[in-house]
Computed example of a mutant assay.
Amino acid sequence: MYAVDYLSVWYVSAAAHLDLFGSLGLCLGFTAGIMPRRDRILLASAACAAAFGVHYLTLGAFTGTAMCAISILQSLVALTCLGRPGRSGWVAPLFAGSTLAAACLTAITWNGWPSACAALGTLFATGARLHAAPQPMRLLFLGASLCWAGHNLLVGSVFGLTCDLLTIFGLGIALLRAVPARPVAPEVLRA
């Protein structure tokens, strides 16, 4: 057997488990959780949602795909418009409309618990994107990641579940890193 034959056999057996977009989403999801600034969190989050949107489409998880599309829109709007004078007046109605669109898309693509988890995760993430400070944003993204972990477990997305676990871990590190250390009180020496 030649090397090309081995490569061909390996590819055929591994093709079902290899997913470029799932792998990319996994990397971007963890990266978003540990980013230091809000703008970088939102940019990495939008890229992650784009990659996972394609991944969910290949799995037939249409609610997850639809929620990723909403996530991309919200992340890019929050990145470019929130906090800038004169441009944020229409952001709240746009977020309200996108939340309504998410509810309608969830109803249209309803698939039981996976759809409920994806919708709830999107709701938490929507709240996160509206925050200007990174810490409350991370807390809400933690809630979103827990919901998406339920979705990914139910639809069988190994990449999504791995990403969620890494993102939860990364968000936990980032949240703990920002907590100020307590001063240590000097001990009283006993004679």
Rank of each mutant, 00 (worst) to 15 (best):
I34E: 01
L100D: 07
L120Y: 06
F52K: 04
I168V: 15
G150W: 13
T65L: 13
Y2A: 09
M1Y: 13
A44D: 04
L153N: 02
T109I: 02
G60R: 08
R138K: 06
T126S: 15
I41R: 04
A125T: 05
C27N: 06
W10Q: 03
L140F: 10
L142E: 02
S23N: 11
G160T: 05
G97W: 06
R129Y: 11
I34T: 02
P183V: 01
G33W: 04
A96W: 07
G25F: 04
L24K: 08
L140S: 01
A61S: 13
A149Q: 08
F52R: 02
V179M: 05
L171E: 03
L42Y: 12
S71E: 12
L175S: 00
P114R: 07
S23R: 07
L43T: 03
P114K: 08
A149I: 09
F159V: 01
S75V: 00
S98G: 02
W113Y: 09
G83M: 01
L105A: 08
G64K: 10
P134A: 08
G29H: 11
L189D: 02
L42R: 10
A103H: 06
Y6W: 14
V54T: 11
L24H: 03
M137A: 03
A102L: 10
L82Q: 10
A44S: 12
A44Y: 14
C163R: 11
I34A: 04
L28M: 15
L94Y: 14
P134H: 03
V9M: 12
L79S: 07
A61L: 04
G156R: 09
V155E: 11
L20F: 15
P93F: 05
T31S: 15
W90I: 12
G143R: 01
H55V: 07
L140T: 01
P180W: 00
A44F: 15
S45Q: 14
A103Y: 09
N111Y: 12
